[in-house]
Design a protein around this nucleic acid. Sequence first.
DNA 1: CATACAGTGAACCATATGGTTCACTATCAG
DNA 2: CTGATAGTGAACCATATGGTTCACTGTATG
Lengths: 120, 120
Amino acid sequence: MVHYQARLDATFAALSDVTRRGVLEQLGGSDASITDLAQRFHMTLTGMKKHVSVLEQAGLVITEKVGRVRTCKLGSRRLEEEAAWIEQHRQLWSARFDALDELVEQLKRKEKADAKRKRR
Amino acid sequence: MVHYQARLDATFAALSDVTRRGVLEQLGGSDASITDLAQRFHMTLTGMKKHVSVLEQAGLVITEKVGRVRTCKLGSRRLEEEAAWIEQHRQLWSARFDALDELVEQLKRKEKADAKRKRR
DNA sequence: CATACAGTGAACCATATGGTTCACTATCAG
DNA sequence: CTGATAGTGAACCATATGGTTCACTGTATG
């Protein structure tokens, strides 16, 4: 569990930049090259390359270079640890303030509905 | 929704430091003064004050100074947005992997069919 | 009053971050 | 072969971060 804290550090840091969150959303739609991403976020190739490296370091993105183009796609890490950490502390909050959280209930219902839909 | 991104920035940045996550966990147990926290995390008062300020800025901690001691406790924000963001992207990840599974299944079925056809 | 204690703010330091330009390599297309 | 294209790495820059020390204010307390 030595790496656990460092990993949380890296992931939360990766997520703390609006451009990088945008890249993740973009890659959620479809894979993209560095050039694609650089254009979409109005940035130099070099700048985007750095962001992608940060995301790759955090395990959130995988890249592969074939020919001269490097293709980026979502990584295999699924933010379970981060979700768990936040959930744990959301519960702490809730316990302390003893208030019910409508949004999460909505999310849960939505999840269930999604799951149901997927199952059919 | 202009503030939305800035808030995510601030919160994820606040969570990206191991000391600050520690402080949140500590405050989950009980309220504490700056001195308490500084001692527990082997840091100067000034250093801890900065961390607390960052957490307060992100709305994760509330402080109140009475007499000469400033008491820190968990704030009213409960990480709903961050949980929602992560959950949303966990689902994206999942969706992509489901799609991949489906593709593999299709390939398998196709292979079987091909094999059958060849055998005849 | 005198002294100790809790916190604060300014200044400083080293390192990290987010971005650029520029020079370069490697690959693709004609 | 020639040019254009995609990416890379080094150097640079401004600002942010995580920490310190030091001087200071305000509050308790003997």
